[in-house]
Design a protein around this nucleic acid. Sequence first.
DNA 1: TGAACATATGAGTAATTGTTCATATGTTAT
DNA 2: ATAACATATGAACAATTACTCATATGTTCA
Lengths: 124, 124
Amino acid sequence: MDEKEKCIDCPHHTECGGKNIELVKRLADKMITEEEAYFVSELFKALSDMTRVRILFCLLGGEMCVCDIQELVGVTQSAVSHQLRTLKQAGLVKYRREGKSLYYSIADDHVSSMLATGLEHISE
Amino acid sequence: MDEKEKCIDCPHHTECGGKNIELVKRLADKMITEEEAYFVSELFKALSDMTRVRILFCLLGGEMCVCDIQELVGVTQSAVSHQLRTLKQAGLVKYRREGKSLYYSIADDHVSSMLATGLEHISE
DNA sequence: TGAACATATGAGTAATTGTTCATATGTTAT
DNA sequence: ATAACATATGAACAATTACTCATATGTTCA
């Protein structure tokens, strides 16, 4: 009997048995789209830098202007500003103006949730 | 009166008022450590690539061998293997051997939680 | 033991990223 | 209007990263 017959859809399932062929077929339809995967990865990319993580943890304590963040995180104004831009674009922070200062804050509960889960994960 | 007197701890709070000086002082102690921030950012870095995100979403459907993932995600064996290594190092996946195949699966609930929250976040 | 298969790994390369430096924008008070 | 302050932005550079290619490791079966 032709072992390879059952492997039409997967050239690799010649001998590993292709036990999961059904699972693969079933998932192929519900797979996350390329677009969704892209946006999700971009979101996590915004969380993938130490400086940005520290900024977000600052903001968990409440809204804060740029120079406060600069003080707490200990990097230059320019660096903070660039990173805030990244966080803003990812929808992780928002801001309001008050006089000369811009007050940044966490955009929504997803952010704190992801940070908390991340922190849990590393402490195990 | 010397306006700058109240700004000993923060050279930037000369005129933005330093309204948050108390907040800053309070937070400075409870701030996430450099080490924690590093590990958290490394964790999210593992989630910051489209291919890895797609791999993880595959695995949410159940454990799967490398060639199944390769099939679903549509990249080379080598690329999948390299990315699985990254995911493994971040503690996001685990595997077991069965014969010649390695079956990978999601390491723990944190992973699905973060992916779900991430997906929620982008669809708003 | 040797061949076939499943997967991992190292080197090399093109692309991406975080920071710094210099400068621009927007706001307030004089 | 001008100066001082708070923040944003663009260019440039060093460091990191994801992929490809070639090859190595580990497993099964004859």
